[in-house]
C-alpha cells in the first residue's frame, strides 16, 4: 500500500515538471511513427551524410527552432515578435542581391546576419524607445518586410533571383563529417544563447523585466536596454534562419519563404512551457517544442494522409499538449479517475 502511495505522489510530482509533458508528447509521436512507417528509425549513410526520418525531423525543424529561440527571449520580456518571417525574407533578398553584385560570399554571410540585427534594431526601437505595444510594433515590419524583400529583388532587375553559393549552401544543406551542417549551426546558436542568458545576468534581467517592469526598473535594471537587446537577439536568430532557408532553395522568394514561421515559433515557445505573460525563458524546452511541431508535420506526410490534414491534426495535437500542461485540466482528469475508483 505504502509503495502505491509513494508511486502515486511521485507520478503527481513528475506530472508537475514542465519538461514531462512535451517530452512525453515527442516520444509518443515517435512511437506512433514507428508503427505507421516501418523504416522510421532506419538511419543510412548516403553520399557521406546521415539520412532517415528521425534525422529529417531534426533537419527540417532547425530553422523554426532557431527562430523560436529568439522568440523565447522576446516572449520572456512579455513581448512578441511577429516580424521574424519577414526578416527571413529580407535577409534572403539581401543575399541574392549581393551575390548578383559579386560580393565575397563570406562578407555576404555577415551582411545577412547584419540585416537581421538591423531589423531587430528597428523593432527594439519601436518597442523600447517609442513604447509601442510589441504586437503592433512588430506587425509593421511583418506587413512591410516581404514587400521590402521584393523591392530589394528589383535592385538588379528582379529577373532571376536565384544564385549558387558553395559557402551558404554548405551551411544549409551541406554536412560536416556525417552530420548536416545546419544541425551544428542550430546547436551552436543554442549553446551561444544559453551562455548569454544563463551564464551572464541577462537572463535574470529579462525575466525580471518581463515579470514586473516597474519593479525591475526600481531595482536598478535598465528595462529599456534589456527589452531592446531581446529584439536584437530575435532579429539575429531570424537572420541565421534566413541564411539557412534561402540557401536551401538558393533563390530569394520573399512572398512565400518562411510563411507562418512566426506562428510556429510562438507555438514552440508555448509548447515548451513559456507564457506569453512573460517572465520566464526556457531555451531547451523551446527546441523540444519546435521538434514536436516538425515531427507532427513529418508524421502526417509519411502516414499517407493527404497534406490537407496537416494543419488540423497539428492544431489538435498542440491543443492536447497544452491541455496536459494546464494544472486545471490535469486536476480535472485526476478527479475523473478518483471518482471512478470510488
Amino acid at each position: 500500500m505504502s509503495t502505491d502511495i509513494t508511486l502515486s505522489t511521485r507520478l503527481r510530482a513528475l506530472a508537475g515538471y514542465r519538461a514531462t509533458w512535451p517530452l512525453l508528447a515527442l516520444a509518443a509521436i515517435f512511437i506512433v511513427d514507428g508503427f505507421i512507417s516501418p523504416g522510421f528509425y532506419d538511419i543510412r549513410i548516403v553520399e557521406g551524410r546521415l539520412f532517415g526520418s528521425v534525422i529529417d525531423i531534426f533537419y527540417r525543424a532547425m530553422p523554426t527552432a532557431i527562430v523560436a529561440l529568439g522568440m523565447a527571449v522576446v516572449i520572456g520580456t512579455k513581448g512578441i515578435d511577429l516580424s521574424v518571417g519577414s526578416v527571413v525574407a529580407i535577409c534572403g533578398a539581401v543575399i541574392a542581391w549581393r551575390i548578383h553584385e559579386g560580393d565575397s560570399h563570406f562578407v555576404i554571410l555577415f551582411l545577412a546576419l547584419g540585416t537581421g540585427l538591423l531589423c531587430g534594431l528597428w523593432n527594439g526601437f519601436l518597442v523600447a524607445v517609442l513604447n509601442i505595444q510589441p504586437i503592433i510594433a512588430t506587425l509593421i515590419l511583418m506587413v512591410s518586410g516581404r514587400g521590402i524583400g521584393l523591392l530589394v529583388n528589383q535592385f538588379y532587375g528582379g529577373t532571376d533571383p536565384s544564385f549558387e553559393s558553395a559557402l551558404l549552401q554548405g551551411l544549409s544543406v551541406g554536412h560536416i563529417w556525417l552530420i548536416p551542417t545546419r544541425l551544428i549551426v542550430g546547436v551552436g546558436v543554442f549553446i551561444a544563447l544559453w551562455f548569454l542568458i544563463r551564464r551572464t545576468a541577462l537572463g535574470l534581467f529579462i525575466e525580471a523585466v518581463g515579470g514586473n517592469t516597474s519593479a525591475a526598473n526600481l531595482a536598478g535594471v535598465n528595462a529599456r536596454l534589456i527589452i531592446f537587446s531581446a529584439y536584437l537577439i530575435a532579429g539575429l536568430c531570424a537572420g541565421i534562419a534566413g541564411v539557412i532557408l534561402t540557401a536551401d532553395t538558393h533563390t530569394s522568394d520573399p512572398v512565400s519563404v518562411a510563411l507562418y514561421i512566426e506562428l510556429d515559433a510562438i507555438l514552440a515557445v508555448v509548447i515548451g512551457g513559456g507564457s506569453l505573460a512573460g517572465g520566464r525563458i526556457y531555451l531547451g524546452m523551446t527546441v523540444i517544442g519546435a521538434l514536436i511541431i516538425q515531427a507532427l508535420t513529418t508524421s502526417i506526410l509519411i502516414s499517407g494522409l493527404p497534406p490537407e490534414y496537416n494543419l488540423v491534426v497539428k492544431a489538435v495535437v498542440v491543443l492536447f499538449v497544452l491541455l496536459l500542461q494546464s494544472q486545471n485540466a490535469r486536476n480535472a482528469v485526476w478527479g475523473l479517475f478518483s471518482w471512478r475508483k470510488s
Binding site: 535574470l204 525575466e207 525580471a208 515579470g211 514586473n212 519593479a215 526600481l218 536598478g220 535594471v221 517572465g279
Partner: peptide, 15 residues
C-alpha cells in the same frame, strides 16, 4: 513596484 512574483526569493534578493 517591489517584487517580481514569478522569480524566486533568491533571485529577488540579489536583483
Amino acid at each position: 513596484e517591489g517584487l517580481v512574483g514569478e522569480l524566486s526569493i533568491r533571485e529577488n534578493i540579489i536583483l
